[in-house]
C-alpha cells in the first residue's frame, strides 16, 4: 500500500518489458472521488489534472484517444460530452486525435495513423512517436489491457480519464470523469499555461493525422498512401528482427 510519500510501485513511462505486473497487484490503490492517481501515488484531483495538462503540453506528439463511449452518439449525454472533449482538445496546441472506435481485433494490418486498437496499441504509439496520451471513453476492461501494453513496450506517458473508478496502470488517472471534470480539466490546462508552462507546439491547433483525417478536415481529396499499413503479428509485436537466436547446441 501507499504510505505517506512512499510509492508501493512507481507507474512510470516504460518500456518496462514484456508482461509488466498489474499495478494493483503491486499495491497501488485506486483513487477516491476528489482524488487522482499520479505515477502510483494518490494525490488531489487538481494536482492530477495539472500533471496531466503539463504532460500533454510538453511531451512530444501528445494524442487524445477517444473510445466508443465518447466517440459514438449513444445518447444526449455522449453528444454533450463530445462538445467538452473538443473544448479540451482546443486548449492543447499541436494535439492529435486518434480514435479507438471499437475493440474489433484489426488483423492482419492496421493503419496506425488513423486508429488505435486495444489488441496492439503499441503499434500506433510507436508509429506516431507519441510520448503522452489520454484514454477517454474506453471501457475499463479494454483500457486496463491497453495501458499495460503501452507501459510494457513504449515510453508514452498514459493518462486515463475514467468515468468509473480510475486506472492504476495509467501514469495519471482521475476517476468519475464526467462533463464537470472535463470542464475542470480544460481550466487546469489554461491555468498551467498561465503559470508559465510553454506548450511544445505553441500556436498550432489540432494536427490531423492519417490521410482520411487530413482529407476530411482540409476538404481536399488526399490519396491513400500505398504503404501506410503495419503488419500485425510477430514482427509487428516486437518491431524488430531477432538479432541472435537460441543456440540449440549450447550446454
Amino acid at each position: 500500500m501507499t504510505q505517506g510519500n512512499k510509492v508501493a510501485y512507481p507507474v512510470v513511462p516504460g518500456p518496462e518489458g514484456i508482461l509488466p505486473p498489474a499495478a494493483t497487484m503491486m499495491g497501488v490503490p485506486l483513487p477516491e472521488e476528489g482524488e487522482g492517481l499520479v505515477e502510483g501515488r494518490i494525490v488531489g484531483e487538481q494536482e492530477a489534472l495539472e500533471t496531466a495538462a503539463i504532460a500533454l503540453l510538453t511531451r512530444k506528439n501528445a494524442t487524445l484517444f477517444p473510445g466508443p463511449l465518447v466517440l459514438w452518439g449513444w445518447n444526449d449525454h455522449t453528444n454533450e460530452k463530445a462538445k467538452y472533449f473538443f473544448d479540451v482538445a482546443n486548449e492543447l496546441p499541436g494535439i492529435r486525435i486518434i480514435p479507438m472506435p471499437d475493440y474489433r481485433p484489426i488483423y492482419p494490418k492496421i493503419d496506425p495513423e488513423a486508429v488505435i486498437n486495444p489488441c496492439h496499441p503499441n503499434l500506433t504509439i510507436w508509429h506516431n512517436k507519441i510520448e503522452a496520451c489520454v484514454f477517454i471513453g474506453v471501457h475499463c476492461h479494454f483500457a486496463n489491457i491497453t495501458l499495460k501494453m503501452v507501459r510494457a513496450g513504449t515510453n508514452c506517458y498514459t493518462i486515463a480519464l475514467c468515468a468509473e473508478a480510475g486506472h492504476e496502470d495509467a501514469m495519471c488517472s482521475v476517476p468519475n470523469f464526467d462533463i464537470e471534470k472535463l470542464v475542470r480539466f480544460r481550466d487546469a490546462i489554461i491555468k498551467v499555461k498561465k503559470n508559465g508552462i510553454k506548450p511544445l507546439y505553441e500556436g498550432k491547433g489540432i494536427i490531423p493525422t492519417g490521410w482520411a483525417q487530413i482529407s476530411r478536415l482540409s476538404g481536399k481529396p488526399v490519396e491513400k498512401p500505398k504503404d501506410d499499413l503495419l503488419e500485425v503479428g510477430v514482427t509487428g509485436a516486437f518491431s524488430h528482427e531477432l538479432e541472435t537466436g537460441l543456440d540449440d547446441t549450447a550446454e
Binding site: L71, W72, G73, T78, K83, P99
Partner: peptide
C-alpha cells in the same frame, strides 16, 4: 438506433 452515428465533431476524425 443512435449507436451507429458519430457524436458531434467526431465523424471527421474516424478512420475512412
Amino acid at each position: 438506433l443512435k449507436t451507429i452515428q458519430a457524436a458531434p465533431g467526431f465523424q471527421d476524425y474516424l478512420p475512412k
